[in-house]
Design a protein around this nucleic acid. Structure first.
Lengths: 361, 361
DNA sequence: GTGAAAGCGCTAACAC
DNA sequence: GTGTTAGCGCTTTCAC
């Protein structure tokens, strides 16, 4: 304890800051500050952390502040976390972060809210690979995260990686069979909203282009559609519920059949499908929205806002999902008694819906 | 040092794991492992970290492994980092993470490479707000990051936040006036590549739709265009270099003028402009690529790959930018003697370029 | 080959 | 109001 301080101890002569051109942060410690300020480390710790209930004299407080300034002191979170046995990290493991803007929005929402609550997000991108998941989890656990958000870029069921159970967690945009806490979009409500966009303008003969992929979206949106139609007192003509691939090509193919079906409006599984429908309709000489009104889903900005005409659609609440995820995790928000927390999918009106040419209302 | 261990020492009776239902990771420490294995903490540390040159007996090694397994021990990175004075974090501060897929790709590239090198990315989203930047920096510095990547979602000049200089850093997709290390896309090369896509098919009368926004992209791409034209022995007709807003609307407006200019091909500032050009051309009864060949820029997947016909374009190397950013930061890669590191923008051939109808070559 | 012991920089009792 | 002190869990000389 008396010798062997050569290595690092030597740095405490007051002006070690910025001396190491590359590598870590400043090497000024809280101890250096306490010395300069002529107070104990406890006092410094208290003023730095704005500890409430710590009675510190105005003078001491000022001297500490000045010393911090003079030395360019930066607290070492590592040391603080070690003592507290807890970090201020929240882990977010995502199956994708750039494939679509969706995952990005979840991350952004989670980040903003975490930040607001004083936490930092530790993000890991697994590309849905189990090894990466395990490694990411290990890393997060090693860093003493407060909890973990497990998210997917599209709404689906997942199997949880082992190890997730070692820590508090909530699923975002996905769910697991058993009672694992989760936040997901309200697909049924979304399907209802999409349909209502058309219903409100007086449409009654409405096609519904569903995806061929089994998923909560496939099941939920059509259910919402049927609900809305029922409320409007319209029988759903099953001929108008068409399964098609959830992309432009699928929309194009299904769109070609629309002209012969005598519909005045169509709900598409997503914006890309709507984009294909636009193309198909145009080829048949039909105008949107004058001949056929079109509603998308997802509110994928780059498509929806810039199609000609701009597409009315229903937004997936990714940002909100991220926000709620951390609120739930941190206990700021409460879970419903049963099932996942469902977040509303708000309708976004643009210009692809008009009153039907031949009034049918 | 002989007493006072009551507080926490009590937890080490062997089976403290998983006792705290929520909150941190397991409370099993390396010390618990050493006791179970009947070795010293030093030995445990060595085998856990696969310390090379540490001579550990096969038997001891095995016993440690078993103890780790039995106890479900997880190393505490916080403690390790404290001792080492360095974390295995690399900070990435981005001005956006979800506005476009661009930022996401940078993050993904950086993440993948960091992971490969044994580091974890600490990501902060500042939305270009100075306060958020300062806070993010402080947080990263507090966590003893090894270095910081400062990135922007579009290529531009930035002013560095104070504090960045306290730590090793490199700019990604942006640059600062002085000699700050940076990685950026090679805009000139990209402009050349876009033009060559057309030149290679025999086009000679080529329009260039430039953005109205001053930027490296605006300056670089046209320069590359001129270079390529010069190499092909073609004088650039300045009437064919048109400034227009860098979005669909801008492309639509400029696209309408194209028909009267007698061009057979057009280079667009980006894919959204190309999208607008498609619309304008179609309105004038012109087909892509039969009447006019179109080349975009950005390779914004959701647009480029799904326009009808799919758009030939030039990709912005965001993923690669992220990768190179961490390689440069970590010294795995060397910087050019002068200026930023420029990463190539590769051409992506799809179906919007064909030989001109009236051969002009 | 293995272990003892000294801290990394900080927080939190607790004493004064 | 302020200071002393005992560690947080780990790595790392250095001794044997």
């Amino acid at each position: 304890m008396t010798e062997g301080r050569g290595a690092t101890g030597a740095s405490s002569d007051g002006t070690a800051a910025a001396s190491s051109p590359r590598g870590g942060a400043a090497r000024v410690t809280l101890r250096d500050v306490s010395r300069l300020a002529g107070v104990s480390t406890t006092t410094v710790s208290h003023v730095i952390n704005n500890k409430v209930g710590a009675r510190i004299g105005d003078d001491a407080r000022r001297r500490v502040r000045e010393a911090v300034e003079a030395l360019g002191y930066r607290p070492n979170a590592t040391a603080a976390n070690l003592v507290k046995g807890q970090s201020s990290f929240i882990g977010l493991v995502a199956d994708s972060i750039a494939t679509t803007p969706f995952a990005g929005q979840i991350i952004r929402g989670a980040q903003d809210e975490a930040w607001r609550l004083g936490y930092t997000l530790l993000i890991a991108n697994t590309e849905d690979n189990a090894d990466a998941e395990a490694e990411a989890l290990g890393m997060m656990l090693a860093h003493q995260v407060r909890g973990i958000l497990f998210s997917t870029w599209y709404h689906r069921e997942v199997t949880l990686p082992a190890g997730l159970s070692e820590v508090d967690h909530v699923l975002v945009n996905c769910y697991a069979s058993d009672g694992v806490r989760a936040v997901v979009p309200d697909e049924v409500g979304g399907g209802r909203a999409a349909t209502e966009l058309l219903l409100a303008q007086g449409h009654r003969r409405i096609a519904f282009l569903n995806t061929t992929t089994p998923s909560p979206a496939r099941r939920g949106r059509i259910a919402g559609h049927r609900e809305a139609m029922a409320v409007a007192g319209i029988d759903v003509d099953d001929e108008l519920v068409i399964d098609t691939a959830p992309d432009q090509e699928g929309g194009f193919v299904a769109g070609q059949r629309l002209a012969d079906l005598g519909v005045t409006g169509v709900c598409c599984h997503n914006d890309r499908v709507a984009m294909g429908v636009y193309d198909a309709l145009r080829e048949r000489g039909l105008a949107v929205p004058d001949d056929v009104s079109v509603v998308g889903f997802d509110n994928q900005e780059v498509i929806a806002a810039h199609l000609r005409p701009p597409l009315s659609t229903v937004a997936l609440p990714h940002y909100e999902l991220g926000v709620q995820g951390v609120r739930l995790l941190m206990g700021v928000e409460d879970f419903p008694a049963v099932g996942p927390l469902r977040v509303a999918c708000p309708p976004i009106g643009r210009s692809s819906v008009a009153r039907p040419r031949v009034g049918t209302a």
